[in-house]
């Protein structure tokens, strides 16, 4: 996956901060933020996850133009998205989200324009009583700003389970 233009905008930061219950004015009040050492509105620590909004192929978003969506409408659905997204009946293509790690190199600020490139990382297997064989796979995403500086390294770990786990 590569994202060519991840526009970091103040209103998006405000909405994201609200959704994670964060009332800190550094995420929505420009006047306040200007007076801080950071000099302006910054993104909260997990904001990079919303780069999905800027990934044209992101498969967990209904597509304009009538490709199938697997959520309910007239029917309870389960229709698989038409592309090779792995398991349209439920989880993400990576399976369940097992771990997420962020390394912060520089603050991400409103007005930044980021790019992101993702590479596969390690893979490993584990046996579990609850879910059978677990296959773990890592993906490493590097976010760079408009000056080419590395701002965040994000490592996600997904797990595919042999059997469904619901607790």
């Amino acid at each position: 996956m590569a994202i060519e233009k991840f526009l970091v905008e103040a209103s998006h930061i405000m909405m994201f901060a609200r959704s994670v219950g964060d009332a800190n004015p550094i995420y929505h009040d420009e006047d306040y933020a200007k007076e801080t050492e950071l000099g302006g509105i910054i993104a909260p620590p997990t904001f990079a996850q919303s780069s999905a909004q800027f990934d044209p192929d992101y498969f967990l978003r209904p597509k304009i133009g009538g490709e199938g969506w697997f959520g309910s409408g007239k029917e309870a659905s389960g229709a698989k998205p038409s592309k090779d997204s792995g398991d349209g009946g439920g989880g993400a293509a990576m399976g369940l989200h097992a771990e997420q790690h962020f390394e912060y190199h520089l603050p991400v600020k409103a007005g930044d324009v980021l790019t992101a490139t993702t590479k596969p990382g390690n893979t490993w297997e584990k046996e579990s009583k609850r879910a059978g064989k677990l296959k773990f796979s890592e993906s490493v995403t590097e976010y760079r700003n408009q000056n080419g500086e590395l701002v965040i390294t994000a490592t996600g770990v997904g797990v595919q389970t042999e059997r469904a786990v619901d607790s």
Binding site: S19, L60, G71, A76, G78, G91
Partner: peptide, 21 residues
Amino acid sequence: GASGDYNPLHTDEIFTTQVAG
């Protein structure tokens, strides 16, 4: 809405209970 992850497992009770189980 904010993150862009619209997986119905998180928001669509009908799909999640009747299809995904």
